[in-house]
Design a protein around this nucleic acid. Structure first.
Lengths: 339, 339
DNA sequence: TAAAGTTGACAAAAGGTTTTACCATGTGTT
DNA sequence: AACACATGGTAAAACCTTTTGTCAACTTTA
């Protein structure tokens, strides 16, 4: 049915060993003429190596696993796209593992990936406050598998580990600076879960900006959200009887909630309140009031993750690498100078 | 390193054959006592079958391929999620293949999937007007691989083929009916590419609604878009010097374009113009003017696709099945009764 | 008691590749 | 002539399962 290495050997009057050597460009003493003959024959007969056989023999799968909470979230989808584009380029495959935030499901996936001799896994789910222990044991499991892994936005792990991260401290800093420079002084913050490293860094950046302007930080204007649309809405409910001229929502989804929360109180953006988001979700440019936001190079991060993994798979004793990406403030219509 | 079937055999004082038979519950004459012993041992020693070996021996991978144009599009992401959820349930895997609309890339993917002994592929990309021939030859390739495949929203293929489809004719019908029942008579349509079967059906449904009301259909109020945000904008530019009280955009993304296009001409929704979308993108509920739209059960379609494929993989001579899904009109704030 | 049937398990091949150690043959040295 | 050394290539094992035909050892039947 399928044409094998042996078929080619037969057709060429050679041994399978030779064919294999040629087709993999192994250093060996084989004459140019036979090399050419084999290559031509392989082409002509439509040879494709059996993935299973290669995998069995070499314990390599040329496959990456991507473990994320939710593929419908544009952030993860973009990351996935980056990862996959590099995979495709290198002729690798990507298995998608969406955990829906279930640590147990994550565990199942990790075990399945193991059985498949996966060559690397990019894991974006991050242990937050709750259920840390299972997430941690999953990491442990992953590490014990001796498979290269790359984390996202999580650097403070027990041992050195590959990671792609953004300089979120700077992200928080430049966005806050922007608002301050427009004259805002009463700025409200709707943050991410305080258990997340990346959320903390962002907030620290915000504080640094205040510090730079010699302003007192006011914890009363900080509402801890959880990166959902609803928590943006709730944030405004919390803030409604406080005084503020600007809101910095630490992701775009919450900023959308802020938009609608504000309109509930008949406040308009940016006339009454300036709003800044974080992520540059593709919709932010499209909204009737386009959102000023901090752009993360998520696609590039996905690509880099793939590169790191593939490299690590090919160089078993490569040192862990941490690639840091820069952030950019995208100015749109949701912020204005205060009178 | 990894524990194999032979290790278990050794530990139990049995042959690998017996262990395999037990672990796969093959009908065979093996005493209960040995069965139990083997199972216990497997558990205890942490045995996981080698995917590669099973794959090589049985030519089965327990893996599905998903071929889509773009994972960042919520429609495909939702479909992917449905497919993957079922896979996970059955302990299968899913390889993501994002073509970015490149037929050649699609071809590469199909070949790669073939080499992996893929057990089924869900293919959502649909040959539209341009480049049909390559897409067609890709389908041909897929069919020649004798791998179960399931299409989406494409039924008129040369030979019977699995498919999950929506009754788009009805979708167009009910949405148009809604506008008509609100008193609208000058209704503009921004359609999808006329080469797509699903886009055609939708339009036909619209026409049927007009027919039911004994109204004359006006081709001048139809703008052919391509399902992008921009084409929604362009649609309004085209329509601006025509008379209309409602717009039916045949997907939500274009409806967003319509929103912004209208605001450019100082027309507001729904006061001046009613707008209906199609898809029920998750954002449609969140917009400042929530969008009335036709909801497709995309997640369910993804799940069904997986079920069809897994079933077909397990029953080699199953007949092609076509599952049709119902559509629902979701009433929100973007449409109003005409005075 | 010999033949027939059952029961419980196994030997061995097959699936397609990679890799190492080895083998002929031919060429160049002394 | 005897040897060393390139040159070009191959044999065979290994990777881990699945599956079929076979085989002892018992038990039952005639």
């Amino acid at each position: 049915m399928k044409v094998t290495i042996t078929d080619i050997a037969q057709a060429a009057g050679l041994s399978p060993a030779t064919v294999s050597l040629v087709l993999n460009n192994r250093p060996s003493r084989i004459s140019e003429s036979t090399k050419n003959k084999v290559k031509a024959l392989a082409q002509e007969m439509g040879y494709h190596p059996s993935f299973a056989a290669v995998n069995l023999r070499t314990s390599r799968s040329y496959t990456l696993g991507l473990v994320i909470p939710d593929i419908r979230n544009d952030y993860y989808a973009t990351y996935a796209k980056g990862l996959e584009d590099v995979c495709q380029e290198m002729n690798w495959s990507m298995i998608l593992c969406t955990t829906n935030q279930h640590p147990l499901r994550e565990k199942q996936y990790i075990e399945a990936l193991y059985a498949k001799n996966i060559d690397g896994v990019a894991i974006v789910t991050t242990p937050s406050s709750a259920d840390d222990s299972i997430y941690d044991s999953n990491r442990e499991l992953l590490l014990s598998m001796k498979v290269p892994i790359v984390q996202t936005d999580l650097t403070n792990y027990r041992e050195p580990i590959n990671a792609v991260v953004c300089d979120h401290e700077k992200g928080g800093y430049i966005a806050t600076l922007h608002l301050l420079s427009l004259g805002h002084r009463k700025i409200a913050f709707i943050t991410g879960p305080s258990g997340l490293e990346a959320a903390q860094s962002r907030l620290e950046g915000c504080k640094r900006a205040f510090h730079k302007y010699n302003l007192k930080w006011d914890d009363d204007l900080v509402y801890e959200g959880d990166y959902t649309y609803e928590s943006g809405l709730n944030g405004i409910d919390y803030l409604c009887d406080r005084e503020f001229t600007a809101v910095f929502a630490l992701n775009d989804l919450m900023a959308y909630g802020v938009y609608n929360g504000l309109s509930k109180y008949n406040l308009s953006v940016p006339e009454d309140v300036s709003v800044v988001g974080y992520d540059d979700h593709f919709l932010s440019a499209i909204l009737t009031v386009p959102l000023t936001t901090v752009r993360q190079p998520v696609y590039e991060m996905g690509k880099e993750a793939a590169r790191i993994l593939i490299h690590a798979a090919e160089h078993p004793d490569a040192k862990p690498v941490i690639t840091t990406f820069d952030l950019k403030l995208i100015l749109r219509k949701s912020t204005r100078k205060i009178d």
